[in-house]
Design a protein around this nucleic acid. Structure first.
Lengths: 334, 334
DNA sequence: CTGAAAGCGCTAACAA
DNA sequence: TTGTTAGCGCTTTCAG
């Protein structure tokens, strides 16, 4: 089975036109006579011809494929977070007719940024270098979910501070004034901001936040358990808990329930993420929803206009989180 | 900030050699003098030069990127199955220095197979057309997880029949002779084969499999619940249940527990997949492990040798599943 | 060990 | 509306 590669020349020959004309119909130029167009289309069909993408990219000087670079730490693929980003970028690429080159970076072995027209960096924690080098090469880039102020790059992130505020606001409005929190990893931007937003809001509303009410967590389920134990030991245990992630919130609820503390009757719990797992727990979780999918989709649009030169200046987009009320929060017992 | 694209010519100029020489060091030809090599490397570093991948591909006539095509049905990303394949292919690409173009097919909008050097089709259910068209164009392809006998294509799949046998064998060896099963969707190859393997083995061992012991499921958790109810209504309920997926097995256990039926004391349950969720249930699940990750990785190797012409004939690889013993199975009560 | 030159398949002026 | 022609950036004979 010798499928000799057929090129534009073969098609041109068979259609008895120039390769330019073939190229024109390939690119939907309006200036081709119906007659020729038909002939060319026939020839294309005859050969089952598909243009060589590399040649097109080379000639056009553009590259309609983008890289999605994600850290390859273990478990990344099992995180709701990563999956939403992949889905969003995938979807964005589909509508923008872009190829998505998916690259799981293990820290080294960086994506060869010259093989793609632009790149989206998700979750740059340990790989600032890669972003820098892409920038240095002049590759259009956008960073997702991180506000990187010290790098001259476009980013698009969620307003975590606002998220913390919203959570605090909701709990306060419900009538709570003994509100505790289990923070995320405070070395991460998200962890810190969520906590800051929460704390500031409480301050503003003159709700006291004693240090015993702040458990410094790390997004792990384990720390959530420990936090619950500590809170329960207090003479004045909190009547509401804000967890910086749904995962932790779910574990908090589980731990609470094991101790025969009812949720939300005895203690209200609010999470962060809007992970689908929210719905599967014993108590449907009230939470702060992050527009992960939309953010990822948007990042493709942004990157795409960066690549096309439509936008020249770096752009920074902050997307608002949103309260999702379910069953895990209620007014405090009188 | 005008990062003029630097090309091989610029590098050659600066190093005062021909572009041929530059190309040689780019491609690690051994026939370059140390002196020139150093000069070229310096120039490359100076410009932060990266070769244009499209040009390389065009000139070399090859394309070192592969497509991974997956069906985009809702929930695909939340399935252990899909994630393992993505991870495996991703990892395979990394070691083979291949770009992975990830394409979620929505049925239409097929991957432009000419933009990649080869493609891996995962889970071809409704998209045989795409496989056929890739084949017609002479694009190297391999299908994962499906034995497609009626298409002239390489595939690599798991021996589901064997998996069914292993499950049956284990249960029988434990001493069970009232063994029920909740099948997967019997319209899928996996569902059918797992069931066939299971049934045949029981037959061989002269273990009776009455029709009441066969609940025709569809991999959904819901059907698992229904199955349990039906089994429990029987005058002679089974002492062991083989579920064609871990998901169903987990639901079966949950349903059993709710009815105060102990697992594995009263009823043994065995699953299929080795989903990490196995470990998180109330009873650690004994199951049949599919080498999904390895399969995906292997498919990259296979595709890669197909692309390089190293292998000319289609190859069919069947990978063996494997019993993973945890806590959900025990000998029947006397 | 090195370089000149001929493409790889396609697009984009520029003419006609 | 069409064709001619010069590249796009790199690899690869083929001489030297």
């Amino acid at each position: 089975m010798h499928t000799k590669k057929v090129s534009i020349t073969d098609v041109a020959h068979r259609a008895k036109v120039s390769i330019t004309t073939v190229s024109r119909v390939l690119n939907n130029f309006p200036t081709v006579s119906e007659r020729n167009k038909t002939k060319v289309e026939e020839a294309i069909a005859f050969f089952k011809f598909k243009p060589n993408v590399s040649a097109q990219r080379l000639a056009k000087g553009v590259n309609n494929s983008i890289g999605l670079v994600m850290p390859g730490y273990p478990g990344i693929f099992y995180s709701f977070y990563a999956i939403e980003l992949i889905r969003g970028v995938g979807h964005g690429c589909e509508t923008a007719h872009l190829d998505m080159v998916f690259h799981i970076t293990n820290g080294f072995n960086p994506l060869n940024s010259s093989s793609v027209g632009g790149v989206i960096f998700a979750d740059i924690i340990e790989n600032r270098k890669q972003v820098e080098s892409a920038l240095a090469m002049g590759t259009s880039s956008v960073v997702i979910n991180n506000k990187v102020e010290d790098l001259d790059v476009s980013y698009i992130a969620v307003d975590n501070t606002r998220g913390g505020e919203i959570a605090a606001d909701y709990l306060v409005s419900l009538g709570h004034n003994r509100i505790a929190t289990v923070t995320g990893n405070l070395n991460t931007q998200s962890g810190l901001e969520r906590f800051e937003g929460f704390k500031k809001y409480l301050q503003k509303k003159k709700v006291n936040l004693p240090t015993e009410y702040v458990y410094q967590g790390d997004y792990s389920r384990r720390c959530a358990r420990v936090a619950v134990e500590q809170f329960l030991k207090l003479k004045e245990p909190p009547t509401a808990i804000f967890a910086a992630s749904d995962d932790m919130a779910l574990e908090i609820i589980a731990a609470l329930l094991e101790k025969k503390v009812k949720v939300p009757q005895d203690v209200s719990v609010i999470g962060f993420d809007d992970n689908p797992a929210c719905l599967y727990g014993s108590v449907a979780l009230t939470t702060i929803k992050q527009p992960l999918f939309q953010m990822a989709e948007e990042s493709v649009r942004l990157l795409s206009s960066l690549m096309s030169g439509e936008i020249k200046t770096k752009k920074h987009i902050i997307m608002p989180p949103e309260l999702v009320i379910r069953e895990s929060c209620a007014p405090p017992k009188k």
